[in-house]
Amino acid sequence: MDLLTIPLHDAFAPLAVSFVLAAMGLNIHYGYTGLLNFGQAAFAAVGAYAMGVAIASFDVPFIPAVILGVLFSVLLALLMGIPTLRLRADYLAIVTIAVAEVLRLFFTTTNKDYFHARDGVSGFTSGFRNANPYSEGMLGFSRNDLWVMTVGWLLVAFFCLLTWLLVRSPWGRVLKSIREDEDAVRSLGKNVYYYKLQALILGGVIGAFGGFVGALGLASVQPDSYNLDFTFIAFTMLILGGAARVLSPVVGAVLFWGLLSFLQTLLSKLIGEWGVIPDSILNSEQIGNVRFMVVGLSLMLLMIYRPQGIFGDKKELAIDGR
């Protein structure tokens, strides 16, 4: 029974919401504009750290702290976009992956009075929790979780609506055209660089909201939550759902997060309770590695065999693979 209930539980929990938002941001980047951002974790991290540190160390109220987080993610987008968006797609990918790693090192090793190294930032949730309308938990979620989930899923709905409106507007038409052929768009007098920067910022800000939700769910901001795993899981979720569809990152993320949780539960049972797999092949520490190997393999296989995602139709493949 746990094999079903735990994954179902996890698939809607605060952490899953945080991945949904991260994947939605990547959908704007990769799905609609064709930008390769391999550092979505950096946006989530910058958002979460800015909010967390502002509240915990500087007593900034909750809403201004969130706005601060958004501002920092915009700055990050400018930092990564300005040098790279005039160049080949690889350069953005290289810089984003590098910035994400260096930021993680930065949060781990510097300004320990504010970032608290690996322990991370905590003590910033009271403002948010005081507004909690739930008096008790239900369905196995604590009342805090329920509150984070309510706000988180409302954010998801809001950003879905925003994305839906945008991709149907002339603005979205320019983005989709850039994805297909930048030069054609340029020849028609559109400032491609400017649109790419806007897309990078929008997707980054959505990613930062993923960071907020994750931080509120865990009640802490730790550097290791924002390693490359974060980005690649979000990427896999996006590809699974099928890029360039408004709801695909949501479906992909819930499905994939549920799947990962199922795998975790199953493997733990196989080595623990049921004792099917001997400890010499797999111990509890290694379950995480095996799960992530599955992530990597899924991403490869999806990209090779179903780049349009599970629900997409290859004929009207929204993403040109080249």
């Binding site: 690889d90 590809i239 190997m293 899924s298 490869m300 780049p307």
Partner: peptide, 17 residues
Amino acid sequence: LIAMMIVTIGLQFLMRN
């Protein structure tokens, strides 16, 4: 190439773990 780059990312993740 973009698709292949994403495949390299998948392989990176697989191998690293």
